Amino acid sequence: MTFQITVQPSGRTFTAQPDEAILAAGIRQGIGLPYGCKDGACGSCKCKKLEGSVVHGPHQSKALSADEEAAGFVLTCCATATSDVVLESRQVTEAGAFPIKKMPVRVTALAKASPDVMVLTLQLPASDTFQYHAGQYVEFLLRDGARRSYSMATAPHRQAEAPTMELHIRHMPGGKFTDHVFGGMKEKEILRIEGPYGSFYLREDSDKPIVLLASGTGFAPIKALIEHLRFKNIQRPVRLYWGGRRPADLYQSDWVEAQCADMPQLRYVPVVSDALPEDGWTGRTGFVHRAVLEDCPDLSGHQVYACGAPIVVESAQRDYLAAGLPADEFYADAFTSEQDKLG
Rank of each mutant, 00 (worst) to 15 (best):
D39E: 14
K49W: 03
R284G: 11
V54E: 07
M172C: 10
H133M: 07
H56Y: 02
P326L: 02
P237H: 02
P326H: 07
I27N: 14
R143Q: 15
T217K: 08
S315N: 15
K208F: 11
E329P: 13
C260I: 12
T336D: 06
E139T: 10
E338T: 14
I311Y: 10
D39T: 14
L167I: 00
E189N: 14
Y305G: 07
H228T: 08
G283I: 11
A220E: 05
R158I: 09
D274I: 01
G32F: 01
H228N: 03
E68Q: 09
H133S: 12
F287P: 09
Y132W: 06
A261W: 00
L141K: 07
E257G: 11
Y150W: 01
F335H: 00
F219M: 09
Q17P: 02
K49N: 00
F98D: 02
S206K: 05
A41D: 04
Y150V: 10
K46V: 04
E69F: 10
A66D: 05
P173C: 09
S53H: 04
R239T: 15
L212Y: 12
E294A: 15
I169P: 06
L250H: 00
V86T: 14
G36K: 00
D116Q: 08
G175S: 05
G308W: 03
D205S: 15
G280E: 05
E68Y: 05
V292K: 11
P125V: 07
S206T: 11
V181T: 08
D298G: 10
A248F: 08
Q235F: 04
D249T: 04
K102S: 15
Q8P: 12
A95P: 13
D274V: 03
S273P: 08
K341G: 12
E257M: 14
Q17Y: 02
D279L: 05
R12V: 15
D328M: 08
E20A: 10
A70I: 05
P173L: 03
M1D: 09
E338M: 15
S337I: 03
R192L: 14
A66G: 01
F182T: 00
A224I: 00
V55G: 01
V85R: 03
Y150Q: 06
E204D: 13
F177T: 05
